[in-house]
Design a binder for these strands. Sequence first.
DNA 1: ACACTTACTAACTAATAAGTAAGTGTAAGT
DNA 2: ACTTACACTTACTTATTAGTTAGTAAGTGT
Lengths: 197, 197
Amino acid sequence: MNAQNPQATLAFDTRTRILDLAGGLLMERGYNAFSYQHIARELGVKPAAIHYYFPSKDDLGTAIVTRQLKRLRKWRDLPRVADLPPAEQLEALFAVYDNHARQECRVCLFGALAADFRTLPPAMQAELRTFNGELTAWLAQVLAVGKATGALRFVGSPSAKAVQVLTTLAGALQVARVHDETPYHTIVGQLRLELLV
Amino acid sequence: MNAQNPQATLAFDTRTRILDLAGGLLMERGYNAFSYQHIARELGVKPAAIHYYFPSKDDLGTAIVTRQLKRLRKWRDLPRVADLPPAEQLEALFAVYDNHARQECRVCLFGALAADFRTLPPAMQAELRTFNGELTAWLAQVLAVGKATGALRFVGSPSAKAVQVLTTLAGALQVARVHDETPYHTIVGQLRLELLV
DNA sequence: ACACTTACTAACTAATAAGTAAGTGTAAGT
DNA sequence: ACTTACACTTACTTATTAGTTAGTAAGTGT
């Protein structure tokens, strides 16, 4: 069935594998630089098979962002994240970005889509806005509690600081792609230095 | 000759106008979402005319970044920028990004190209690295002097802070594109609050 | 056994992409 | 008057894109 990928003979959830591959391509090349052919070739199927699961590229793109939004909500509500003190919640966030940086300098979904935003289907734009909005709201809450308990320090409002920190993290992964991992670690080090008491 | 753009009859430096238009499209749609047809249509010429000035898209893309790099060097060495005290040099930098934000939330060149970086021609990648490197070096110097004279405050090294601030600014324009101008101003306000004494 | 679904493939289409070769009009120089 | 360089246009090629249509093998439920 699939010569180049032996474990694919199990045909284990093709839909999920399409989403994984497309998501990876999206973060590595950008929305307008990956095609159904790229996915199909790597998956060992024909492009039309991708259309079977995702009739249009709009559907596929939107599904990727929707899944990431669901993952964010799940992660955020996980006891091992939600029950942490603020400083460690911040570290948990950093750890997510660290993983991106280590995976051959992958940018985050937001950073991958922001530049091409105007060319994205409306449904995808809406999902991405929600994604960024919810993540920002979560971090704002973390920062508010952290400041109140004295575990974190910063000037300005928690929500303003949250927007700034997330923007910096998204940008840090992009800079890592252009140069190497070094500037990413410099930036996160700087954030730690400033935020942690 | 050109019905939709009367001043085009003068055919005033077509090469420059191609660069302007292509640069604009690049920052509005991303490298992989603009074509010679887009430029040609808006310029009132045929796509082949663009090939006359820039044989390949690689040439065009590289020329855009090279020009921006030259502009940076010119701007940086301008007396009305170079002779300013550090805090005002920082404000001059913010003013550049403010212009982008006001022009229908245009991202900066770096922010537009970072996500698609892997799909760019090598010459373009090299120019973008140089561009970012020189801008960072300039800001690091500004921050170093600012800290020494007491006009600016921050923890960590000037070069680390420079990378962080530039990354934040590039990201801020991207967030503005996804939402609206509000988060951009929030972020720059936050930077002012933290850096200016 | 029959009806129906799932998960695809083969074989297209229409549009658009970058790029090229050859030709045309015009203005300046000789 | 003749040539030449410039700034294009016309008319293409080749490759790739998203997307469609018809069909099929292998299963599932009744």
